[in-house]
Simulated scan of single mutants.
Amino acid sequence: MIASRQTYGQARALNLTFQVSLVPAGTGVAPNALAGSSMLPGHPVMPRSFFNVYHDRALIDDEGEELPDKHTAWKEATMTTGQMLQSMDGSFLPGTEWRLEVTDEFANPLYVIHVIAEKPR
């Protein structure tokens, strides 16, 4: 059985699906925000972006990914959104929501992609 707190990368690799459970991303520095950073002398530190998914339960990314800029984080978010929605293989039904929230290493929101499935009236 898969634990309820998977990392973004693990969920993406496993094509996991979730249903909405809104949980605040939190405040302050995210756990492990600097884990794996390029903090060697003379090497610039790239910003770390965190990709939190909300669909049935919260999938909080506590590792993040070093990306050169916000534009790259947006590109990664849109590509991942498409891949994750496609992997739901028809299980994303009317009345459900899916959200990807991109934050920086201080839990400040950068982008939110919010998908809502509705029946026409």
Rank of each mutant, 00 (worst) to 15 (best):
H114K: 07
E63S: 09
V29D: 13
P109R: 06
M79Q: 12
A13V: 09
S21V: 05
L100V: 03
I2H: 08
E97A: 07
R5W: 04
R99E: 14
L100Y: 01
W74D: 09
R121E: 15
G82N: 02
E63F: 14
P68T: 13
V20I: 05
A11H: 05
V29T: 14
F51N: 04
P44F: 00
P120K: 07
Y8H: 00
L16T: 09
P44E: 07
P47K: 04
A30G: 07
K70M: 13
E118G: 06
T17C: 03
I113R: 00
H114C: 06
D69S: 03
Q83D: 13
F92C: 01
W74Y: 10
P47F: 01
G36Y: 05
I113H: 02
V23K: 00
E118Q: 14
F50Q: 07
L93W: 11
Q10S: 15
D62M: 04
G82K: 02
N52A: 04
E63W: 02
G26E: 00
G82W: 06
A11Y: 08
I2L: 10
F18E: 09
Q6K: 07
P31H: 08
E105Q: 11
D104T: 04
P44A: 07
V45M: 15
T81A: 09
G90L: 07
A13M: 01
E105I: 08
Y111K: 00
E118V: 11
M46K: 13
P94C: 05
S4I: 08
P94R: 06
R12Q: 15
E101N: 10
D62F: 05
M84H: 11
P44V: 14
N32C: 02
Q10N: 11
V112L: 13
A25L: 10
D89I: 04
S38Q: 09
T80P: 13
V29M: 12
A13R: 02
Q19E: 14
Q6T: 15
S37K: 03
M84G: 01
G64E: 04
S87G: 11
I113Y: 05
L85H: 00
T78V: 10
F51Q: 02
V102S: 00
S21T: 08
V23Y: 10
A13E: 04
L40P: 03
R5E: 11
E97P: 03
F50N: 00
V29L: 05
H71P: 04
E105R: 05
L59I: 15
P94G: 13
S21L: 13
R121S: 15
G90T: 01
P24F: 09
L67R: 04
F92H: 01
S38K: 12
G36M: 02
R12E: 06
E101G: 10
D62Q: 06
V45N: 09
E66T: 07
Y54H: 10
E66L: 08
S4H: 06
M79Y: 12
G82A: 09
V20L: 14
A3M: 03
L100G: 10
R12A: 15
D61M: 02
H43D: 06
F92I: 08
S37G: 07
A117P: 11
E63G: 03
A73N: 12
E101L: 12
N15E: 10
